[in-house]
Every structure is written in C-alpha cells, then in structure tokens.
Nucleic acid binder design. Structure first.
Length: 628
RNA sequence: GUGGGUAUAGCUCAACUGGAUAGAGCACCAGGCUGUGGACCUGGGGGCUGCGGGUUCAAAUCCCGUUACCCACCCCA
C-alpha cells in the first residue's frame, strides 16, 4: 500500500479501544475522589508559551516541537508538547486565580514531540495530566503522588517504583550547578559530545544521558542532598513531604534519596535514580517519577512530575506555587498488556463527598505545633476516605476553621468532618450536617460505616415528610453499626428490624438502600447463626438489585456456611462479574477471612480461570461464549 | 472576505455627555463570633478605562489608527 501514516503516528484500533476506555474511566474516577476538575485546552499554543515555560535550552524546545506559522499570521504556533504550560495559561487568562487562588485540574489528550519513535514512544502520544495551582503546601506534593499511585493501583498495575527527589529552588540549583561543574571539570573530556555541550548549557541533563560512559560518571556525581546545597526551606519542605507520605503507608514503594538531616530517614530499598532531574526548566523542589520496568524497554518511566513554584509568576501571574504530574498513556497500556491484568471496575454505589476541616484555635491562641498535628490528622482522614472510594477534600492553606467552613459551604458539601484537639484526644471525629447544622460525634474506627449510613439517607427519596422518618432510620442503622462492631449481634438485628419497619412503612423501593439494609441484616444474621433467615434476606435484596456486589459476596459466605458450596460458588461468580479481581481484597479483609478458607479460595480461583479469560487488550471475555 | 456593534475591577454594569482621587452589586480576603458555614454588620485588596497616537487647561468620554471579541452576510456543511 502506498499511503501510510507519518512516522511516529499510531492508530488506536477498535480492539484496543476498550483498554483505553478503562484507563480513561480510572482517571475520571480517581480525579473525582481527589476532587480535581477536568480542563480542556487547545492542541496548539503560541510557541513563545513553551519556550518561556519549558525552557529555551531543552531538547523539547530546541528540536522536538512541531512549530509553524499560518499564512495570514506571522506569530509562530506549536503543537503542545506537554500540558502544564497551556493549563497555566488558561488559569491566568481566565483570571481563575482571582476567583479562587487554589484550583485543581486534570486533563487528558494528545501531545506532540518530534522524537525518534521507539517502543512506548510516539510522535503523537497521550497523557493524563494533573495540576494543582496556587499553593505551596507540602500536603499537595504528597497528594499528587498518592493520586498517581491510586491511579495505577486502580488499573491493577502493582510493580511500579517511585523515585522522589528535591531539586531545590533556583538558588539551590545554582549552587548545585556549580558543584556539578566542579566535580565534572577534570573528566570533561570523557563525556560524550552531547554532554560536553551540556556542561555549560544545562549540566543537569548529563544525568539523563543514555550513554554508558556518561552514566558511569553521573553515578559518581554528588547528589543534591549533599550537605550545604539545599537551603533550609527546601530541605524542610522535602522532609515534610516525605513524612506525610510515610503516614499514608506509601513509603515502602518509594525509593528515594532523603534530604532531611533532623528527621529519621525512612528505609530505602534501593536507589535507582537518586539524581532524578527533570527535563523542564520550571521544576523546583519536589520532583518524582514512577517507573515500571518490565516490558517497556528503555522507556520505563510511566509518570513524572513535581513542583513548579516559579512558573505561574514567569507567565505573568502572581507569585504562587503549584504541583503536577503527567502519565504516559501509551506506556501504561503497554504495561497493562504485559501484565494481563484483569481489568474491570467496581460498580460502586455513589458516595457523598466529604470535606474535612481542622479545628484551629482562635488567631491568638494558635500554635504551629498543634496546627501541624491537626493538619496531619486531617490529611490522613482525607486519604482514608478516598481509599474507601469516597470523594474527599481538605484545605491546604492553613486557614481558620471559619474560613474552612466557608469553603465547604461554598462548594456545597453536605457533610463536613471536623477534627480538633478534643477529637484527637478521644479518637473520634465530628460529622456535621451542613443542611441542619447538627453535629454527631462518632468513634474514628466506625467513621466509614457511619458515612455509608449518610449515603443511604441522601440517596433515598427526599420528600420532606419522609425525611424525619429516614433520619430515624439512619439513627437505628448507626446504632446497629455500633452494636455490630461491639459484637452485640442480637442487638444489631433488633435495630435493623426496627429500621426495616420504617422502610416498609414509607414504601421505599430504592434498590441501593434495600440492598444495603438487607445485606447488613444478612451479615448480622449469619453471625448469630440464623442462617436460613440470612439467606432469605439476601435473596430478597438480590431481587431488588443484583448488580450490587456486596450482596452476592455476603450471600456467598452464608451459603458456604450452610454447606451449599455450589450455590456459594454461583453467588461468588455473580459478584466476580461485577467487581473483577477486587474480590480478593474483600475476601482477605479481616473479618471475612474465616469464610474463605484456603481450599475454598483455591476453588474460587480455578472457577474464575475456567470461566474467564483475558485477552491481550485486557478485555474481560467469557470463555467460549461465542461457541455456545 | 464584506458590513455593523462592543471594549471600564475576576464577573455584570455605572460615571451629569469634556471636569477634580473612575464607582456599585456580586465574587475574593480578614474581622465582628474565645471550637464552626449560609443571614447581617465593619473593614481590606484589587483598574496603565483594550492598545497607539492626536485635539484640549483638562479625555473613560471627542478625532484618527490598530487589535480582540460579538452579531449578520459571504463561504462551507
């Protein structure tokens, strides 16, 4: 055939499209949890935007951009080689910073760079991009890293590694540049030609060089964390980012070179890239990169980003900080194909978003130490809620409680969790209903269940005469949770029966709500050995909503207990159809373990393998379904 | 490509038809309120009046040019 696509252009053929859609839907879902809003910017911008932001002496600007001028207009324009510049431009052009200084965006779409194509690298490629604009908070550095890791987890990619580094502020970088040049000076002749040129122009890039010789030399260079290079502020910031990540139990994935002198350094399994620098000029302080080595060839970076505290100002905005990252979709798709990950998504019930506020003292009484403790707690709870699949957000600017409440109100949050010193002391949280102003204190460990209860009321019918009875229902439901958690299953069953009466009285036919109620009832009755009743309740619930996986899981455990192993397998397969491999997490959750003894787990596994096969695109297909 | 209209704070609009430090509502920030949002009150930040030139003692206002946007037409579908 004569006509081919230009070099480096790739068609996404119908067989691959489902996989792309899964990646996109994971992206939307995770961004919803972290409360980022989608933004779409043009495919091309004035060339000067990129030269100013990405940097004059970068490979991208020097030789990789597709730049052209139109017939009537002499100002050169370029196809976007990255997202950040365009998004910051839009943020400033529409004066979004004057509305609300701090905003979180995400974007998805094609980008263009004229590189030599290779595996996982194309001239038109796609990225998923995140930008949090208008804040210096180290919690945001941590948040973006967590978001990235949740995104990959959601896709079932488990083998990624995270490298984190700090490249300091411009002052630190100047110092570091000098240190590097001094270290390299005696060996300059040994560097490749390219790097000899880089020595003067952009010495940091020598660390990215692919040539063996340069890599060996780069490995011996002083790391930026060497004493005396990073200023106090940069070092403290990095230490804080790291301690926040540590509190979220992400640190075992992180291979980093730790800067802090005062805080204890976390264990680092290995140091694959302690000299991580980034290709763009605008980065400051934190930089990070996620790598996924198997099957990606030499292009093993799937995601990279960092902080850029000077870019907004350089593009004509106010002085303000920002963090972001971009993930290469083509490479993620390759990784997914390689792992044959079982991709399918949980049909989760809709959860109401929660805002978490720290109860700071009055201005005069505030002390920094206490504020930090509260903020850490707030961030931890925010993370916990997001991991439970609930959209959640917090304030990053250390504002007063009043200001935080104002934000929550403005953004239409129906519930706000407040954490103050009292709550910390008693290990509780306060949940405030923003419509009624009511506040309820709830033990921290039952927080998720309580919030599920609020979902029920909010998702049920909202006619005014029903509201009061529904709130009574919610109280009974909450009471049942407490009783169930404290082991009083009989008491829980009584409360649930009372609650059920309310639903019958109100003739409520909401599938989710009934599934939730009967699912819980089934669990409780199973625990008090009323196995037949439990099964009946669950079957009742299945009739209402058989797409709600939890019902099938619980039904499976009950049938297993009744000795109806074949029935149990069938229920399980139904749940599996809905959730995919998410079931294994559920089965291994404490409290569920005893219903899934290892031989039963094995049987489930082989049953799954018998019925489902995953093709290269990751699409879930029923085996042989075409033949039958 | 042709014709018309508009351009003032982040937004919507004022400013006696040439007059003094360009205002208001909304939005934003802070306080009134010792651990809490909406209502109210007080204060604060924010403007090269699109840009360049001209007339005038004096220009947001008048004149010329220019740019951007909107509408209609032409074209395209």
């Amino acid at each position: 055939m004569e006509i081919q696509s230009p070099l480096g252009m790739q068609d996404i053929l119908p067989e691959d499209v489902p996989l792309w859609k899964k990646v996109e839907s994971a992206m939307h879902r995770i961004c919803a949890l972290y409360r980022y809003s989608e933004i779409r910017t043009p495919l091309f911008e004035f060339t000067s935007l990129f030269t100013r932001s990405v940097g004059e002496v970068t490979d991208i600007v020097e030789k990789e951009m597709y730049t052209f001028t139109s017939n009537t207009d002499s100002t050169p324009i370029s196809l976007r080689p990255e997202f950040t510049a365009g998004i910051v431009r839009a943020y400033l052009q529409h004066s979004m910073h004057k509305q609300k200084a701090f905003q979180k965006f995400y974007a998805f779409g094609p980008l263009f760079r004229r590189e030599r194509p290779q595996k996982g690298r194309y001239r038109q490629f796609h990225q998923f991009d995140i930008e949090a604009l208008g804040s210096y908070s180290p919690y945001l550095d941590a948040e973006t890293i967590l978001l990235a890791s949740d995104f990959l987890n959601e896709l079932g990619l488990k083998e990624y590694k995270i490298s984190i580094n700090s490249i300091g502020c411009p002052a630190c970088r100047a110092k570091y540049r000098e240190a590097l040049q001094n270290a390299l000076a005696p060996r300059i002749g040994e560097l490749c030609q390219n790097c000899q040129a880089r020595y003067e122009r952009n010495v940091f890039r020598i660390m990215d060089c692919k040539s063996e010789k340069c890599r060996a030399i780069a490995a011996g260079l002083p790391p930026i964390q060497q004493k005396g290079i990073l200023c106090d502020e940069c070092r403290d910031h990095f230490g804080k980012v790291f301690s926040i990540l540590k509190a979220t139990e992400l640190e075992d994935r992180v291979n980093t070179f730790y800067a802090g002198q005062t805080t204890k350094a976390p264990k680092a399994k290995s140091i694959p890239n302690p000299l991580l620098v980034r290709g763009f000029d605008y980065y400051t302080k934190t930089t990070f990169e996620f790598t996924y080595s198997s099957a990606l060839g030499s292009q093993d970076a799937i995601l990279g980003g960092g902080r850029y505290d000077n870019l907004i100002e350089e593009l004509g905005g106010p002085k303000s900080g920002a963090v972001g990252f971009a993930a290469g979709i083509e490479r993620i798709i390759l990784a997914l194909k390689d792992t044959k990950t079982q991709l399918s998504f949980k049909k989760l019930p809709k959860k109401i978003p929660i805002f978490i506020a720290s109860v700071t003292e009055q201005e005069q009484k505030r002390n920094q130490e206490q504020d930090t403790i509260l903020r850490d707690a707030v961030f931890k709870i925010t993370t916990q809620l997001r991991r439970d699949g609930r959209p959640a957000d917090m304030d990053f600017e250390n504002r007063s409680l009043k200001a935080q409440m104002k934000i929550a109100n403005k953004l239409n949050y129906k519930y706000v969790i407040t954490i103050g010193s009292d709550e910390l002391k008693h290990d509780t949280v306060k949940i405030k209903n923003m419509n009624t102003g009511d506040e309820k204190t709830c033990p921290r460990k039952y927080m998720l269940e309580y919030l599920n209860g609020y979902d029920i009321v909010n998702l049920a019918h909202s006619e005014s005469k029903e509201i009061q009875r529904l709130n009574e229902f919610l109280d009974l439901y909450n009471k049942a949770i407490s009783l169930h958690q404290s082991g009083n299953e009989n008491g829980a069953a009584d409360s649930l029966n009372e609650a059920e009466k309310i639903l019958i009285e109100l003739k409520i036919d909401d599938a989710f709500l009934l599934s939730e109620l009967y699912g819980f009832k089934g669990t409780v009755e199973r625990n008090i050995e009323k196995n037949e009743e439990a099964e009946n309740d669950l079957i009742e619930s299945v009739k209402k909503n058989n797409e709600y996986a939890l019902i099938w899981f619980v039904l499976c455990t009950v049938q297993k207990k009744l000795g109806k192993e074949d029935e149990a397998i069938k229920s399980f397969m139904k749940a599996y159809e809905i959730t995919g491999d998410a079931w294994s997490d559920w089965a291994q959750r404490e409290g569920n373990k005893k219903y899934f003894p290892s031989e039963f787990l094995e049987r489930l596994k082989s049953e799954v393998e018998k019925q489902y096969v995953y093709d290269a695109s990751g699409t879930q297909n029923v085996k042989n379904s075409m033949n039958k």
